[in-house]
Design a binder for these strands. Structure first.
Lengths: 145, 145
DNA sequence: GATGCACCCTGTAGCCGCTACAGGGTCAAT
DNA sequence: ATTGACCCTGTAGCGGCTACAGGGTGCATC
């Protein structure tokens, strides 16, 4: 049949949206198994590689770390286990996302109110600089060397 | 007077909450000017350094990049300029924070609904794995090699 | 058969913002 | 004299790639 679905690294990259260098790097760090090589020493990928790399890409898009991806891949290969472990990884990641959102929102609030207070005169009476640099270069402190 | 406010690197670290290595690194990348040295070649910091490092720390806490901090420090040293440039840096940073928040919230939504759909049976019918790995290891694709 | 071009290979260095050593020197107190 | 806390320089590592340099391969075209 003509469905001899092997491809070189560039085709795999196009099929998954990953960059060629990224694929090689995933191989180096053990996320993708080393594929067979052609006569000219080219990497030759089949459908399982495509599936695995797609998995990795999707998990990365969801923000999982490579260590988490590794764990998920390990679990995905054992379909008879209860999926509590998968759930735990996902929930932990969700909690971290929530933490990051909260941090950024706090930041946003602080920064936003600083910007709102800026009357846009000169730097010397800019609230932003003032809030950052308490008395820097003011005679009271800076001149005492 | 006893207010000879020079200090070694450790004291500066304690005063600002930065780590000693971080301070040396800031010097290396040009954020902090190289201070005077004591007889034993110890760095000797004064009040201007303290103020400058405090500025850096606060800006970093607000999430500015080191390049942005550099720009802000440059502007802060010229008090007679209009503060529009400061404002611009801050607004750009704010916009980026907003972008990150939006990205994370989208992520959170996706991941949250995946987790909600997990009936917590076995891995093989886990929605999370399923969503990540479309048909990986299923006979339809994986076995065709 | 020579040329061109797209693709592939390995290996190394760089990005950000630190952090963590290793292997020494200095200083004050005991 | 010795301890111990501090300081110094220099290098390597983190995550997750990205970007070269300097070559080899494979196929089409003249």
């Amino acid at each position: 049949m003509s469905t001899d679905s092997t491809m070189a690294i560039g085709a795999l990259a196009r099929a998954t949206g990953a960059k060629v260098e990224t694929i090689r790097w995933y191989e180096k760090v053990g996320l993708l198994p080393p594929p067979a090589r052609s006569t000219g020493n080219y990497r030759s990928y089949g459908a399982p590689h495509l599936a695995r790399l797609s998995f990795i890409r999707r998990a990365r898009e969801l923000g999982f770390s490579l260590d988490q991806v590794r764990a998920l891949l390990g679990l995905a290969g054992q379909p008879d286990l209860p999926c509590g472990a998968v759930d735990a990884i996902a929930r932990e990641h969700l909690a971290e996302i929530d933490r990051k959102i909260a941090d950024l929102q706090a930041l946003r609030g602080e920064l936003g109110s600083l910007i709102d207070q800026c009357g846009c005169g000169t730097v010397s009476d800019c609230r932003i600089v003032e809030a950052l640099a308490p008395r820097e270069r003011s005679p009271a402190i800076a001149s005492r060397e």
